[in-house]
Simulated scan of single mutants.
Amino acid sequence: MKTGKRGYAAILWIALLVAIGLLRATNRYLVDIANHVPSLFTPKLIDELTGSLSFGVFLPVLFVVLRRIARMTSAPARVLSHLGLFLSLSLAQTSLMLGLRLLVFPLAGFARFAAMPTGWRYLMEMPTQLFFYAVIALGLWLVDRYREGQARELRAAQLESALSDARLEALRLQLNPHFLFNTLNAVSELMYERPQVADEMLSRIGELLRATLSATAQEHRLADEWQLLSLYLDIQRARFGSGLDAQVEGDAALDDLHVPFLILQPLVENAIEHGGGGDGRRVAVDARREAGRLTLRIRDFGGGTSRPGHGIGFANVDARLRHLYGDDAGVSRDAAVGGGSVVTVWLPARRWAAA
């Protein structure tokens, strides 16, 4: 594959050199016509083709040496290297060009146009060679600086992305020990008075932890989030029994929308722990699509002692949303009509596409 690309590039390069020679020969020919000095086109074409092709032969080597010179730290060394490189290029290119003309002109039947190498001939070619040398050296330097700048920007973007991913992962992993601590604390309260309930809670905890610890992505389908929330609510129902009324209202049409992993559990936990009171805890969770956004609401019907930023749950959700979606997502907590409070999460409504 690489060989094919190199061959294609070589063909294009030769075609470009031939095109340059053809255009220069045509220009010279038309100038003669405009000056009413009739001339032959073929000798001019041979002149220009031998000039462009002989110069093109040395360009790959020229690029390599110019890049080495650019890496030199000493300014005098760079100047001397450029001088030596130019003189070497001029001598080699002119020699090759004159040699080709001595060979091609007789073969084409224009022997009288073949000029023998002389010192003046070498000097005559130098101004044109110097111009092209300077243009190529400057152009190559600018291209290399541009590529280096692009590479630095790419590395910076990759580093920023890796740092953002690390922060997100740290935020996500915060949830597991926090949730585990709270739940095991509840189990410890029940294990002597209601051992069967505590055993059922431990079984559900195991299922939920297997699901969460096996996850590797920051996002998944809303349908998967509902499953995790169902496992969590089973744990809380085992803990509170009939004292917990948790209602979840989901629209199957929204199941393929993507949401942050385990985004609902800490908010529902907060609603259960702080939004209820006494033996009656009522929580309602729903999802809707509004104006191109997915909106998740967690409503409690208690007195409500939690505030935005209270505990790890709300702050964690807010930080994760900002890392993942910037200003396109957020979370808020407001007083609900009729008592209690409602936490609202909004984020872009985008379909989940599994890798």
Rank of each mutant, 00 (worst) to 15 (best):
T3L: 15
T3H: 14
Y8L: 15
A9W: 15
I14E: 09
L16H: 11
L23V: 13
T26C: 13
Y29H: 12
Y29L: 05
N35V: 02
H36E: 09
L40Q: 12
L40I: 01
L40H: 11
L45Q: 00
L49Y: 06
S52C: 14
S54Y: 11
S54H: 01
F55N: 08
V57Y: 11
L62C: 02
L62W: 06
A75N: 09
R78K: 15
V79P: 08
V79L: 14
L87I: 06
L91N: 02
L91Q: 07
L98K: 05
L100D: 08
V104M: 01
P106R: 10
L107T: 05
A111V: 03
F113A: 10
A115G: 00
M116D: 14
M116A: 14
Y122P: 00
P127Q: 03
F132Q: 07
I136T: 12
A137E: 08
R145D: 04
A151S: 00
L154Q: 15
A156P: 08
A157Y: 10
E160G: 01
L163F: 12
D165E: 13
D165S: 14
N176S: 10
F179P: 08
F179L: 11
L180Q: 10
T183A: 12
S188D: 12
M191Q: 08
M191P: 02
P195I: 07
P195V: 02
Q196I: 07
V197H: 06
A198F: 09
D199I: 08
S203T: 13
G206T: 00
A211L: 07
T212Y: 04
S214C: 08
S214F: 10
T216S: 13
E219K: 07
L222A: 04
Q227S: 12
L228D: 09
S230P: 06
D234Y: 05
R237C: 07
R239Q: 09
G241E: 02
S242E: 14
S242G: 09
D245F: 10
Q247W: 09
Q247T: 14
A252R: 12
D255G: 12
L257F: 12
V268I: 05
N270C: 06
A271F: 03
I272A: 10
G275Q: 00
G277F: 04
G277V: 10
G278R: 07
D279R: 13
D286A: 12
D286I: 06
R297C: 11
R299Y: 05
F301M: 09
G302H: 03
G311W: 06
G313K: 07
V317R: 07
A319Q: 15
H323M: 14
H323E: 15
Y325P: 01
V337D: 13
V337H: 13
G339H: 03
V342A: 04
T344S: 10
L347F: 03
R351I: 05
A353Q: 14
A355N: 06
